[in-house]
Every structure is written in structure tokens, then in C-alpha cells.
Nucleic acid binder design. Sequence first.
DNA 1: AACAAAACCTGACAAATATCATGTTTTTCC
DNA 2: GGAAAAACATGATATTTGTCAGGTTTTGTT
Lengths: 229, 229
Amino acid sequence: METRCENCIVRKFNSLRAMNKEELKQVSDNKVYKKFKKGEALFEEGEKLNGVYCVRNGVSKLSKLSANGKDQIVKLATTGEVMGQRAVIVEEPTNLSAIAVNDVEVCFVPKEIIVGTMHKNPDFTLEVLRHMAHDLKEADDVIVNMSQKTVKQRVAEAFMYLKNNYGVDEEGFLNLTLSREDIANVVGTATESCIRIISEFKKKELLKTSGKRVAIVKEKELQDLIDGF
Amino acid sequence: METRCENCIVRKFNSLRAMNKEELKQVSDNKVYKKFKKGEALFEEGEKLNGVYCVRNGVSKLSKLSANGKDQIVKLATTGEVMGQRAVIVEEPTNLSAIAVNDVEVCFVPKEIIVGTMHKNPDFTLEVLRHMAHDLKEADDVIVNMSQKTVKQRVAEAFMYLKNNYGVDEEGFLNLTLSREDIANVVGTATESCIRIISEFKKKELLKTSGKRVAIVKEKELQDLIDGF
DNA sequence: AACAAAACCTGACAAATATCATGTTTTTCC
DNA sequence: GGAAAAACATGATATTTGTCAGGTTTTGTT
């Protein structure tokens, strides 16, 4: 396992790439490697975060509990992404929980290091800003989808998202398998509705399944459905 | 009309407050004052923005056109807020249109000045970052509301939002009057559904109206409805 | 392997919401 | 001030989605 941030490939994909050697060394000297098993919480909504989590491996769901007791998954965070930045920047408790979808390895970086670097290195701050700007755009898109697309379209979109971001195995099954409930919580619908729609897609041969694993069969038709044709 | 940014009260509310005297002078020397009438577009989705818009007066709706031809209003931008920051930072065409809800006055600040300051003054960058972090949190909340609350709850919430952010006049009517269609586009529903719900609220005496003006009558009951009681 | 727990699935029905059609009121503009 | 346009309003109906209730299959554990 590579233990020096300076040589960590993961860093290339996030805002830490804008740090200089000295700053990276400081991160490296203070980071704590942590492991979470599938289903474990990295942190929970309302918690004060003392640092950020740089994902080395695995996927976490970032979700928020709604008044009616359902979780809404706002984002999936993958290798290379940094979680908890927002809360550290505004010095507020985090508004989201992070739960491991599969086994997750992260490097925890104390907030003092992040905040200190932001005051000294404008390039780093700007890089963080760019990432946050990107997240904000994605959030805007989600809002529009939520209100303007049907549940069916959103379910279809969720599978396309999984294919495009995590790929498929030799048999064509999605590399990242979510439970039906998780998919429902991404899409913002009832679990039963989600299952029903998946069944319908299977009947129409847009998808095929094997246990909880899902494969996209007719990608174009699925995309047309998303686009409203 | 105050023409020097150094003395502009509006600046106190946005990220420009982190600029030093010299930087502000530069903004002041390069800014362009612009006026837009109700209904006019400050900029449109897909446009490249050559700068940011600092709102001196009035309210604009930031919206995105969906595939089915409906506008989704993602945010309302008011006095003191800066529009277009996101697009300038990531150097992409803007993902949102800005339309004046009432007469709007803005100062247009060329992007070179904003970007230049971000490279030199980490405090400014950090301040922009804080504002964007705040926007991102709000966006997350909107996502959860969209998927977990009923249209009725969201309409009620929209009115509470208008009251809390723009206040009411002597008679109790909301200072910011939106058309039923705009409210529907904030809430993400059909205009008819929105009208119907307002009618229902009137019957229950939660609201009263006079033309398109709306007043909240029973605030507590309205809030209970939002919270799901 | 056997059991329990969790996840998945389906039907029946109820509730929420959209759509279409049509009429009324308000606003705008000449 | 009056005509035209836009916004508002409501009924009837169709569609979508959620809820509840009851199954089956899969997964995990001893």
C-alpha cells in the first residue's frame, strides 16, 4: 500500500493536486488511514467533522434523512473524491451522512491542514472552488430531473449513470451493484415502485438481472426513454 | 446613485467584502451599471459569461429549461447576491438563465478582474468558496424536498420562503409577488396544480389573496403542514 | 445444511398529480 | 376606456405513484 500522498495516484483526481510538495508532506504526515466495511457509516448527518475524507477505494453514499423517515441519496462518492469539504469550509455540522456502499478505504486529513493550506495557497483554494462549482452544477441538474422527469425516467437514468461512471463486467453487469432500496433512494421514490419499474424494464428487455445484479441490454432504447421519446 | 464599490452597501453581503481597497478600486473602475426591466433576460442558459452580475436592486429568477419545455426555477437572486460566479470559475457556458422578476439593477464586473483577484487574494477566493458551499447545501436541501415532500408542502414552503426572505407590506401581503406559473416552476409542478392548492389554502384560510398578491394568514398551521403534521 | 433475516417481488387499491377543456378575471397597451 | 392578451380559476378525467399486505427468493450465520 502506497502510504505517501506525494506518490498517491488518487490525489491526481481531486483538489489535492494543487498542493505543493511541502503541503503534501504535511498532509502525508498527519493523515490517518481508515477502513470501513460495507454498510458502516463514515460520518452521520449533524456530526461535526474534524477533517476531510479522501477516498482511496470503494464507494460511499451521501444521504440526508427526510422528515418522513426516508433517506435521500444526494451523491455517490468514489475513489479520488474528497468528502466533508463543504462542512469543513463553512465550519458547520455536516448536512449529509456517508455510508459505505461496499468496503471503503479512506485517508482522513485533519481540517487544520486543509484550512491552513487554503489561507496560504490560492491555487489550492481555487481548485477546491472548481470542484465545488462542479458539484453545484450537478446538484442543479438533479433538481431539474427530480421535478421534471418521471420516476421511470429517473430510474433509467440511474442505471445509465452507474454504467457510465463505474462500468460493466465481462458479462455486461454493472460493476457497482446497489440494492433496490438504494436505487429508490437515489431516484427519490418508493422501493416498491422502483422494483416494479425494474420488472417492467426486464419485460421490455431493456435490462436483465441476475440476483441484484443488473445489466443494460438495450442502451439506446433506455436513453430514448430518458430523453422522453 | 452611489457609484464607487468602496462605498457600496450591497458589497457587504457578498464575497466582494473580502477584497482590499486596491482590488475594489479596480472593480469600481471596470464595472458597468446595467438595468433590466421585469421579464427581461440578464443572460440565458448556454451563454458564455464574460463576467459576474452583482445585484444592486431587484430580484431575478435563475432557471433551467427541461426537456419537456418547462422552466425549473432553481434559485432566486436578490440584492447583494452575485450571479454567474459558477460559470466564470469553471470557464463553462452558464447552466442557468437569469430573468428579471421585477426591475433589476446590477453591476457587471468583467471576469478578468474576478479571476485575477482569486489568484492573488486567498481570502477573497475563500469567501467565494464559502458562498458556493452555502449554495450547495441549499441545493441539497432542495433535492430532498423535491423528492420527499408533497406538492402541497412545497407550495406552502415557497410562501414561507418568500415571507422570510422578502417580508410583507403593511397589509401583510408578500413583498415579492410571483405569478402562479413562477411559483409552480419553483415548486416543480403544473401551474393548474399550483393554483388549485392556493385555492385550497384560501378556503382553509391559511392564505388570503388580492389579485396575484398573497398573504399568509395562519403561519403556524402552514408551517405544521410543511413539517407533516 | 438449516434457519433467520433481509431483500426482492407482485397484486389490489388509494391518493396525488397531470392534463385537457373551458370559462372568468386581471393586466396591458393602444 | 375598451379590446386583446395574459393570468387565474375550476371541473372532469387520466395517469402516475404510493401504500399496504402478502408472498418468494436470496443472503448470511451458526
